[in-house]
């Protein structure tokens, strides 16, 4: 009887339902988070683990490679923001309009890359960006009369390759977010605007943009984090965490190199914490400016 009461209790039920999530969240997110913080103050050796205070962080501050990694990640993040918010939004509006035929086909085309494994697509892109004359990109540039490039050896072309892979992969996903945002806008608003004689541009500017702001903020937030935390794309393009003059080194790439390749998990953890702080800082600033923390105006 007691069990029955518990099972049918309206008070307990919600907790029971969210319990699996809370448990996995604590176990796989909260616990590792705190354990990473502790580890970042330690020197983790094979047999002995020592507390070393802020030594790992002091070393980070003096580490020029880490600076390179931060700058690379930041540049990459900014470029992806510039490309991965306006264009998916534009595609979403197009998909939502009457201008495009066979929408399902186009949506699928844009979304399929997100379903492919980065390992496979990364390898394919690495082969495409090969500096050898038969590399796909070199075939294209040579046909255009631009000659061939050592794509993955120079900073600009290397970054371009990374951004191309990223856009190829994430445009469809971001577009889907925007489409779902657009669907939630009441069509009556557009109709009344039309009656008032608003042009398409005005409708987009005064109705679409403000009303999909929550979606935009969401996409912006995850894009900032995804940009800073990028690893696989670079790892696959350069077939490992090493790239010429570290042009493809990202913060997580450096974390991997330190933590795994060199088995210095303490230092790796410190890098991870810095990444977390940077991403949190940027996102909090961004969210404040977007007014997310303001009380909802009614």
């Amino acid at each position: 009887m007691k069990i029955k009461n518990f099972l049918y209790s309206q008070k307990a039920a919600p907790y029971v339902f969210v319990l699996p999530f809370i448990l996995s969240f604590c176990f796989f997110w909260i616990y590792p988070l705190f354990s990473t913080i502790t580890m970042s103050f330690q020197d983790i050796g094979p047999a002995i683990t020592e507390w070393v205070g802020i030594k790992n962080y002091q070393k980070l501050l003096k580490d020029p490679t880490f600076l390179t990694a931060i700058l690379n990640s930041a540049e990459y993040m900014l470029l992806t923001l510039v490309l991965l918010i306006p264009f998916p939004m534009l595609f979403a509006v197009l998909m939502d309009s009457r201008l495009v035929k066979a929408k399902g086909f186009w949506k699928a085309c844009l979304y399929v890359p997100a379903l492919t494994s980065v390992v496979i697509s990364g390898t394919l892109f690495r082969l495409m960006f090969s500096e050898y004359k038969t590399g796909q990109m070199n075939v294209i540039t040579a046909a255009l009369g631009l000659g061939t490039f050592k794509w993955l050896k120079a900073k600009a072309t290397g970054l371009a390759a990374l951004v191309i892979v990223c856009c190829w992969r994430w445009t469809g996903v971001n577009m889907l977010y925007f489409i779902s945002g657009l669907k939630s806008i009441d069509t009556a608003l557009y109709e009344s605007a039309e009656i008032d004689g608003a042009s398409s541009w005005q409708k987009f500017k005064y109705i679409t943009i403000p009303l999909i702001k929550p979606t935009t903020i969401y996409v912006l937030t995850i894009s900032i984090y995804a940009g800073l935390a990028m690893f696989m794309e670079s790892y696959m393009l350069w077939a490992g965490p090493d790239s010429p003059n570290n042009i493809g080194l990202t913060i997580v790439g450096y974390l991997y190199k330190r933590g795994i390749t060199k088995n210095d998990l303490g230092y790796g953890s410190a890098i991870g914490i810095v990444l977390l702080v940077v991403a949190l800082f940027i996102n909090i600033i961004q969210l404040i400016f977007n007014g997310t923390f303001k009380k909802e105006e009614r």
């Binding site: 390992v119 696989m232 077939a239 490992g240 090493d242």
Partner: peptide
């Protein structure tokens, strides 16, 4: 030496 081949 590169320690290539790694998957997620």
């Amino acid at each position: 030496e590169e320690g290539e081949v790694a998957e997620g």
